[in-house]
Amino acid sequence: MGERKRSRYPSFPDEYLTGLEQRLQLLLEETPVLADVAKFDTEELKDIVLRESGKGILIILHRESEGSVEIVIPRNSSVNELKKAVGRKLNLLNAKQRRINWKYIWQKHNLAFGNQQLTNDLTTLEEYDLENSSVVTFVRKPRKRKPKKAGKRKNEENVRSDFQ
């Protein structure tokens, strides 16, 4: 009987990306026209492959003062994985500036999609109805107010006696 045809590329994406990365590097080195092309970023290559294969979605992070950033992430990702992808992308963009303290950022801010804050890090993006080309923004977390301590209050009798 017919033998099952093997895939031309091994399991996606690691082995495939390694081979593709090596071929692209050879192409850049051997082609004089491409000699001035900067070294490509493996993360960007992974993003392109994920997106083109249909296994990834594009999330647009809108920042009020600095414009929008496109982030490609696997479809079944959690909010925590999206936060990590945001950190990686923004660290790449801000490489020449000072390092961003993401632990502090996530203590003070959430990501939001529409009017809904993405508060649960373990929830998948699909559960929040994020689809391809969804726009998320940074929003400040609501402040947790400390309960007021019960101070020493004078009882009404003492207050009245002070005024008499």
Results as ranks from 00 to 15, higher is better:
residue 128 Y to L: 01
residue 73 I to L: 03
residue 146 K to Y: 07
residue 149 K to S: 10
residue 86 V to N: 01
residue 40 F to N: 00
residue 72 V to E: 01
residue 45 L to Q: 01
residue 57 I to P: 00
residue 9 Y to D: 14
residue 134 S to R: 05
residue 69 V to M: 03
residue 94 N to P: 03
residue 42 T to M: 07
residue 68 S to Q: 10
residue 47 D to F: 05
residue 62 H to A: 15
residue 104 Y to R: 12
residue 124 T to P: 03
residue 29 E to R: 05
residue 2 G to E: 15
residue 10 P to T: 04
residue 154 K to Y: 07
residue 115 N to F: 07
residue 87 G to M: 05
residue 108 K to R: 14
residue 34 L to R: 00
residue 99 R to C: 10
residue 35 A to K: 09
residue 109 H to K: 08
residue 136 V to A: 01
residue 119 T to C: 09
residue 25 Q to M: 05
residue 14 D to M: 06
residue 72 V to I: 15
residue 83 K to D: 01
residue 60 I to H: 02
residue 3 E to P: 04
residue 142 P to M: 07
residue 41 D to M: 02
residue 76 N to H: 14
residue 63 R to D: 15
residue 103 K to R: 11
residue 79 V to P: 00
residue 82 L to C: 02
residue 22 Q to R: 11
residue 119 T to G: 06
residue 25 Q to Y: 02
residue 60 I to L: 10
residue 20 L to Y: 07
residue 146 K to W: 08
residue 23 R to Q: 11
residue 8 R to F: 13
residue 13 P to T: 08
residue 65 S to I: 08
residue 6 R to S: 13
residue 61 L to V: 04
residue 144 K to C: 09
residue 18 T to P: 01
residue 104 Y to M: 12
residue 37 V to W: 08
residue 157 E to L: 14
residue 23 R to Y: 08
residue 73 I to F: 02
residue 1 M to P: 06
residue 159 V to F: 11
residue 152 K to R: 15
residue 38 A to L: 10
residue 163 F to G: 03
residue 24 L to H: 01
residue 153 R to V: 09
residue 151 G to W: 11
residue 99 R to W: 11
residue 163 F to M: 14
residue 133 S to P: 02
residue 12 F to Y: 06
residue 25 Q to P: 01
residue 14 D to H: 06
residue 67 G to A: 03
residue 95 A to S: 14
residue 84 K to Q: 14
residue 39 K to P: 04
residue 112 A to T: 05
residue 30 E to Y: 05
residue 54 G to I: 03
residue 80 N to P: 02
residue 19 G to R: 07
residue 90 L to W: 01
residue 145 R to S: 13
residue 2 G to F: 14
residue 133 S to L: 15
residue 133 S to V: 12
residue 28 L to Q: 05
residue 155 N to V: 12
residue 163 F to D: 12
residue 19 G to A: 06
residue 128 Y to V: 02
residue 126 E to C: 05
residue 33 V to M: 11
residue 138 F to K: 04
residue 24 L to A: 01
residue 92 L to M: 14
residue 16 Y to I: 08
residue 5 K to L: 12
residue 159 V to C: 05
residue 160 R to V: 11
residue 119 T to D: 05
residue 130 L to I: 09
residue 147 P to E: 09
residue 68 S to F: 06
residue 98 R to P: 00
residue 68 S to R: 03
residue 91 N to R: 04
residue 145 R to F: 12
residue 32 P to V: 05
residue 11 S to K: 12
residue 110 N to C: 11
residue 134 S to A: 14
residue 62 H to P: 00
residue 124 T to W: 00
residue 60 I to F: 02
residue 145 R to C: 10
residue 148 K to G: 03
residue 3 E to L: 14
residue 114 G to D: 03
residue 106 W to V: 00
residue 75 R to I: 06
residue 34 L to V: 04
residue 44 E to M: 09
residue 4 R to C: 09
residue 43 E to T: 13
residue 41 D to R: 05
residue 146 K to R: 12
residue 143 R to S: 13
residue 25 Q to S: 09
residue 42 T to S: 08
residue 70 E to H: 06
residue 96 K to C: 08
residue 27 L to T: 06
residue 117 Q to S: 15
residue 9 Y to V: 13
residue 99 R to N: 11
residue 115 N to D: 15
residue 78 S to G: 04
residue 151 G to D: 12
residue 2 G to Y: 14
residue 39 K to F: 07
residue 22 Q to A: 15
residue 47 D to R: 09
